[in-house]
Design a protein around this nucleic acid. Sequence first.
DNA 1: AGCACAATAT
DNA 2: AATATTGTGC
Length: 331
Amino acid sequence: MREEDSNWFSRWEEELPSPEELMPLSQTLITPDLALAFDIRNPNPNNSNNNNTISNNNNNNSPTHYHHQQTGSVPVNPLGNTTTSASTPPPQPNSAEFGADSAELGSGAAGEEPARTLKRPRLVWTPQLHKRFVDAVAHLGIKNAVPKTIMQLMSVDGLTRENVASHLQKYRLYLKRMQGVSAGGGGSGPANGAGGLAAASADPATDHLFASSPVPPHFLHPGRPNSDHFLPFVQVAALPHHHHHHPQQMVATVAHPQLQPPFHRQVAHFGSPPNGQFEHPFLSTRQSQPVHRMGAPLHNQGPGGGYGEDLELANGAGGRKVLTLFPTGDD
DNA sequence: AGCACAATAT
DNA sequence: AATATTGTGC
């Protein structure tokens, strides 16, 4: 009973981004790189970009060609944004520097040989994305929280099982560390304030990301398997109901490793199928639209350094491109 | 064959 | 350090 248990969820819920925050508008911008990367070598065929509102099926299946990541200052070409509906004004003032494209686009358009040692950009786990992850894990329970399931629940397009697996591995280590700390710690308690941030981290420097989202109590108690049935999310999935609220959409952002940090480009948005209309056969697994409405505006919970603004910190150590999945409008 | 997981590589 | 990739067992 600890009220904590009842409260942690409320607080947690509060920090969830509101639908509005998440998707200001739907502009589908997909760089050739991404389109390609996701389409070709994709282990799990889940690309369902659907515009929530007007399902304007924008098949991004246009295999453009992709150029390898280079240390060079090769910016990703932001082409490919089809201004389908003029009604939507250009809300992407973000880094309005789109002009710097460099490449081409038409060249390999219908090409048949996209594949070619193409590597998809590294996924950057943003706090938002991580939260989604934690939510999913919480919802599933540790028992069922395995990569595939988590991935499905998260329903982030473009996310692969390996992405999740890798993250999960790391997350588990984090939990382990946390247990050690919080267990004997006493006092502070694991009731990390969502708004405040986990106070008891083993290493602040080591896990900023993980600290960004509250860890459900259950995670810390291995001894307590299924005691509660909290329902963090909503019933998700599988319900083909229509809604006017768009779920959260994720946007892929490419961070230029060598460019200034504050510059991230929104390249494309991955969405979750609202009511999964007809999708391609392969997508079957992903049609569900888990998220529903998590209320409340998201505020920065900046721990030692709240990430309000410092979005992805992709370190471009060597100069690799980085893919970031983001909820639209987080910025 | 596919998945989870740990180990290892970048 | 953060992710990706590989290796192993189920």
